[in-house]
Design a binder for these strands. Structure first.
Length: 255
DNA sequence: ATGGCTACGATCCGTAGA
């Protein structure tokens, strides 16, 4: 069972790359972020033809998340219940015996900005939601773009980034609060190459210089972490013409 | 030098991403 998350930065632009990548990587469950299209504009037919059931929570221009699975999706729930938010950032579904939460966490723009405050409030609401989900579903995966680099080793230049948005202490505290629920960073369950990142700036030849951040994550509850046999970042799609600025992140689970 | 891309939607620039 292969799980993946990928911020595609526009599903319409990236659909050909997504279809190629699904065929090559053969993931069983995929969480997608930054669809940038309303739900009716989502290319459901093409993905169903590729063998994936789809659940979609879309929005015009910004945000938007989806879950793809090779087996049926059930108990689909959009957004964070009880958290009033126009922005489509969360989608939850059950796949077999697993509860899957797809998240596109806020960017935060700059420390101290309104968007930064929104980011911290949003993370607090997410934590409460995940605590509730976890109490009902011990086999929980939370996958997506968290917009937080948890540690300095997840940052290409920690000194330059010190205190900035994505690495600030309150944001890392919000990340640790999720981990404290009993969720584990799938990627760090295994030995990994130095300077492993999941996002690189389009500007300044960020990818060529490996000037990136590791901000896309797969969090696993204890039973799933125990079943996890590997985790990786697939840099291949980032090397293509007109790529997303994010690479897919993967975790493999024993059936 | 606080920029540099990219996508979107409304126009030929502004907003947002990270």
């Amino acid at each position: 069972m292969k799980l993946a998350t990928w911020n595609v930065n526009s599903i319409r632009v990236r659909l050909p790359q997504l279809l190629d990548w699904l065929a090559a990587a053969q993931p069983d469950v995929v969480c997608l972020q930054e669809l940038k299209t309303e739900t009716p504009g989502f290319p459901r037919e093409a993905l169903e033809a590729a063998g994936y059931a789809c659940a979609v929570n879309g929005q015009k221009t910004y945000n938007g998340v989806a879950i793809l699975a090779r087996t049926p999706l059930s108990d689909i729930a959009a957004d964070i219940p009880g958290f009033a938010d126009e922005q489509k950032r969360v989608l939850t579904a059950t796949v077999k015996d697993m509860r899957v939460v797809c998240v596109y966490c806020p960017n935060g723009q700059a420390v101290g900005s309104d968007k930064y405050e929104y980011k911290l409030h949003w993370f607090a609401a997410l934590k409460d939601y995940l605590a509730a989900e976890l109490s009902r579903h011990p086999r929980l995966v939370v996958a997506g773009d968290f917009n937080v680099a948890p540690e300095d080793r997840d940052v290409h230049d920690p000194k330059a980034w010190e205190g900035q948005v994505h690495v600030s202490e309150p944001e890392r505290g919000a990340w640790r609060a999720l981990v404290a629920l009993g969720l584990q960073d799938g990627f760090r369950l295994f030995e990994q190459p130095e300077k492993s990142f999941s996002w690189w700036d389009y500007r300044m030849m960020g990818f060529r210089r490996n000037a990136g951040l590791r901000i896309d994550h797969i969090l696993l509850s204890a039973p799933l972490a125990q079943a996890c046999t590997g985790a990786s970042i697939d840099k291949a799609p980032r090397k293509l013409e007109r790529p997303s600025d994010h690479a897919p992140v993967l975790a493999e689970l024993r059936a």
